[in-house]
Nucleic acid binder design. Structure first.
Lengths: 144, 144
DNA sequence: CTCAATATTTCATGATGTCAAGTAAAGGGG
DNA sequence: CCCCTTTACTTGACATCATGAAATATTGAG
């Protein structure tokens, strides 16, 4: 009874899983740090990045962030109080409010993105061929 | 002035960065889901997983979780209230409190780990050779 | 027009996180 | 031995994030 379940998974897979865990931890740390340098929380930075591409209804934001709409209300409130985001009426549906990044908001989002790209320079240590290989492996991992 | 900064980064690198972002999002989602199935939050699951290996002083937990010690107090409080973790005195230093997983806590941690390994099965779609290749690429990415 | 469905907000609640202040113990220098 | 600084942990106050339930406004179907 209670045979060792760990023996079912080969060591190489465990090693790769562990490495991915490390990548995830590193990524998050850098994201939070970059956000903090702009006096933003992680959630605020993610929302602002989404809005820097295009205005979105509150409901769509909640779907993209995988959280409740009532939560989005608070995050947008705080960004709006700082002049980074504004609410606009949707001409085609008066129930809907479109959240949109202001000029200042887009500026901050751009700066944030640059900081992140800089932080991710570790990729530069890989040759073009290796990056191609990494891209293919990640793609196959994500679309089974 | 203000030359396009995006032109400095090649499209392949951006693509890989984007894929990593997707992996990170997927990983987090699955981790939170697995934790929620055990009625744990992400933070509680991470802390319990650490303690399932060995008891640790509160201070070390804060370092591992990259947060303030006062925060760890609350998380351990909640896990202790559910009988998954207990505080023990450190014989060699009476200031220190060692947090340790209980028998039940270790059981939950084991179940959580199995659920995660199951969720990460996408790796199974890669051949041993490909997993080796992925391991090497990730390692080189992480240790520049 | 009526009524169910949808979009958003508000409120209550809990978890997480920070910071500052407090308590207790360790450890060094006189 | 007695200060005095440092260290470990807890407590309290506060902000953010997250959920769920209830309220409001609007849409759109019958």
């Amino acid at each position: 009874m209670a045979t060792q379940r760990t023996t079912r998974v080969d060591p190489l897979t465990l090693e790769v899983v562990d490495l991915i865990g490390t990548v995830v931890a590193r990524y998050h740390e850098e994201y939070e740090d970059a956000a903090a340098e702009h006096a933003l929380t992680g959630a605020q930075a993610r929302l602002l990045s989404l809005l820097s591409l295009e205005p979105l209804p509150m409901r769509r934001l909640a779907q993209k962030l995988k959280c409740e709409p009532s939560n989005v209300t608070g995050i947008v409130d705080r960004l709006e109080a700082r002049g980074l985001v504004e609410r606009r009426p949707d001409p085609s549906d008066r129930r809907v409010k479109l959240a949109a990044a202001t000029e200042e908001g887009r500026r901050v989002a751009r700066s944030l993105r640059d900081a992140l790209n800089f932080a991710r320079e570790p990729l530069a240590g890989l040759s073009a061929e290796e990056r191609l290989s990494l891209r293919d492996l990640l793609q196959r991992m994500l679309t089974p």
